[in-house]
């Protein structure tokens, strides 16, 4: 790891200013991904701005809106009584992520900022357009079992590894960010981006922008929600495919539905067309199959991830079934 300067400001503005002053400065919160990336020479900041003293912690609900401070730990959100009872999908997704120790370090903002787990991104001797633009995509014709089936480009077929973000995109969360030009709100679905010609950019944040909170509106999905994470071992592994499924069922008819997938695209993958199919239909396997079929439109596989074309719809059916029975 290279040496770097370190500061720990206690006001948002000071933190943002510090980033603006140095081209190679970065925020650090939990550090569970950034420290790892720095150790491997993938990210080489000259200055770390430790934001842990900023007033961005806590979970609050008022006016039917749940607001989660960006520095709130993954474990704190997952165990928070309001989240468990009213937003179980988010709690389940968080608990499916990483390990208890990492959830005690990782923050909500940091979870959103985590980078892909593509092995070519992690090995500095291999080509990777995300790490080193212009070097090519090692995964495209390489070992791409973990990789995208939606929204990829020739430049990058990596996936976003977060579980939490899959639940947040399903729940129409809104991200509040503070930056040199002031505050703005970003709908969660627009926070992460597809790789296109700039896979080095994971999200739509601009230089100096700091995530301050995430908000979710109260909803009717607390009764029937399930986060299914399908992976190569039972715990402490990234998703091959994950599904966030939430249903508003009244008299066995699906009144409203939320569906998103992880492990399939460069961003958490919202499935609106499949949600629409479900609306007004009975909560039966036949409906779920229809939704799964709709969800897969436009999917494309590579040499080693063709199984996802079957695993993804099957997982949607399984998740919807479990959500409906929850």
């Amino acid at each position: 790891m290279i040496t770097f300067d370190y500061i720990k400001p206690s006001a948002n503005k000071a933190a943002i200013d510090a980033i603006m002053k140095n081209q190679n400065a970065m925020f650090i919160a939990g550090g569970t991904n950034l420290v790892d990336l720095m150790k491997r020479g993938i990210t080489t900041p000259e200055k770390l701005v430790d934001i842990n003293n900023l007033p961005l912690k806590g979970v609050n609900k008022s006016n039917n809106i749940l607001s989660i401070g960006a520095l709130t730990l993954n474990s704190e959100v997952a165990e928070h009584e309001t989240v468990v009872k009213q937003f179980p999908l988010l709690s389940m997704a968080l608990k499916a992520g990483a390990s208890p120790q990492i959830r005690n370090m990782a923050t909500v903002g940091g979870n959103m900022m985590q980078r892909t787990r593509c092995p070519y991104f992690y090995d500095t001797s291999m080509p990777c357009n995300k790490r080193a633009p212009g070097t090519g995509c090692g995964a495209l014709h390489g070992y791409n079992r973990m990789h995208a089936i939606f929204g990829m480009s020739e430049q990058c077929i990596a996936v976003h590894p977060s579980d939490m973000c899959v639940a947040l995109v399903a729940l129409d969360a809104v991200v509040t960010v503070s930056g040199p030009k002031g505050e703005r709100k970003i709908p969660f679905a627009s926070f992460h981006r597809l790789p296109g010609d700039h896979p080095e950019k994971d999200n739509t944040l601009e230089k100096g922008e700091l995530i301050t909170s995430v908000e979710i509106k109260e909803n009717n999905f607390s009764k029937h929600a399930y986060y299914l994470k399908v992976r190569d071992r039972a715990s402490y592994a990234f998703a091959l495919v994950s599904v966030a499924a939430a249903l508003d069922i009244q008299n066995n008819i699906i009144h409203d539905a939320r569906l998103a997938m992880g492990g399939v695209a460069h961003k958490p993958w919202r499935l609106k067309a499949a949600e629409n199919i479900l609306k007004g239909k009975p909560a039966t396997e036949a409906s779920f199959r229809l939704a799964a079929q709709m969800a897969m439109q436009g999917a494309k596989a590579f040499e080693y991830n063709a199984f996802k074309l079957k695993l993804a719809p099957n997982s949607i059916i399984e998740a919807l079934t479990l959500a409906s029975k929850a």
């Binding site: 370190y6 650090i28 550090g31 420290v35 770390l48 842990n52 208890p100 005690n104």
Partner: peptide, 19 residues
């Protein structure tokens, strides 16, 4: 590398000492 920091279990390998 699990240790307790302020009573919580965390990974010391991903914790910068300065923080």
């Amino acid at each position: 590398c699990t240790v307790h920091v302020n009573g919580k279990r965390v990974l010391s390998c991903l914790s910068l000492a300065v923080m």
